[in-house]
Design a protein around this nucleic acid. Structure first.
Lengths: 160, 160
DNA sequence: TTAAATAGTTCGGTATACGAAATATTTGGA
DNA sequence: TCCAAATATTTCGTATACCGAACTATTTAA
């Protein structure tokens, strides 16, 4: 165990800077979903709606909305699959690819800004630790949560 | 410089686990704002609306909304300041304090889950590095961003 | 050849964010 | 003292995002 109070204190003191400054998003015209969507599609070149929804962990109707916005603003294009005409494939437009390029540059600049302040030894550790943390999250372990904190799954129904 | 492509690859591969799993929020009935609000008030015991809005970096009208929800669900109470009757003071209710206690336990469990997998040396480095990173963010430095990425500040006005 | 399954979108309701106007109270002169 | 300006907060109207359920189009399987 370690000092949770001190940590929470640090967290709350830095809330404003760390969490409400919208992070990667600070002054950009894209939301978190939109940025990840573009990076995701850039990586795989194209993606179906189902794959997309699965990847970002939202229902199809939400995925449609995210894609809609990006298509409307011409960062993505929708195409029907030739093999299965029910399937919609999302691709980056040229404008979208250009944006991804700029996004990557920006992310890179941010990272370098952080990295510049770390020693080589610290950088090495950071790399190792980051992967460990990612693995832990990926392994899907969850601590037990007190009942109160859980979302109510059962709704009351009013009868008149 | 370092390998931005590899990093973005790692990020996108882990999008689902790291970012869309709602992080601290995974199955809880509170939003990010609400959790931070309760932790914030717990720390200072009470807070005015202006202080609150300033701390979480939102306009007053938004702060009112966040407080409204928490008051409605009885985690917070609103009180008028005796000295200046314009001022509203937010405090945790007993229910709210209990919730903060549970939240802290949960955060602690998550952290320990991560910490258990790190060596002592890594833990030490993590602490040091975390503070460095926080300082960098707090120092408000920003990398230059290509014009395209910036939010349009000027809106077009339609004339009929 | 047609019912069931699959892929995606549309629609309607709900929640959140926030600017501008409104309300209430305090303060700083004339 | 009195009142206009300043301050603290809420209310209102609007815009945006999320998501379940119903719906459309297409493919599959019997």
């Amino acid at each position: 165990m370690f000092d949770i109070e001190a940590l929470i204190e640090t967290l709350t003191e830095n809330i404003k800077e760390l969490f409400f400054k919208e992070w990667i998003n600070l002054d950009l015209k894209f939301s978190k979903s939109e940025i990840f969507t573009m990076l995701l599609i850039d990586k795989s070149k194209e993606i179906t709606m189902s794959e997309f929804a699965e990847n970002i962990n939202v229902p199809m109707s939400t995925a449609t909305g995210i894609a809609d916005r990006l298509v409307k603003n011409q960062y993505l294009k929708r195409e029907r699959s030739e093999e299965d005409r029910r399937v919609v494939v999302l691709k980056l437009t040229d404008k979208g690819s250009q944006m991804v390029k700029e996004l990557k540059e920006m992310i890179s600049k941010y990272l370098n800004m952080v990295m510049d302040d770390l020693t080589d030894e610290e950088k090495q550790f950071l790399g190792k630790i980051a992967f460990k943390i990612i693995d832990i999250f990926k392994s899907n372990r969850e601590p037990e949560v007190t009942h109160d904190l859980k979302k109510e799954k059962i709704k009351t129904i009013e009868i008149e």
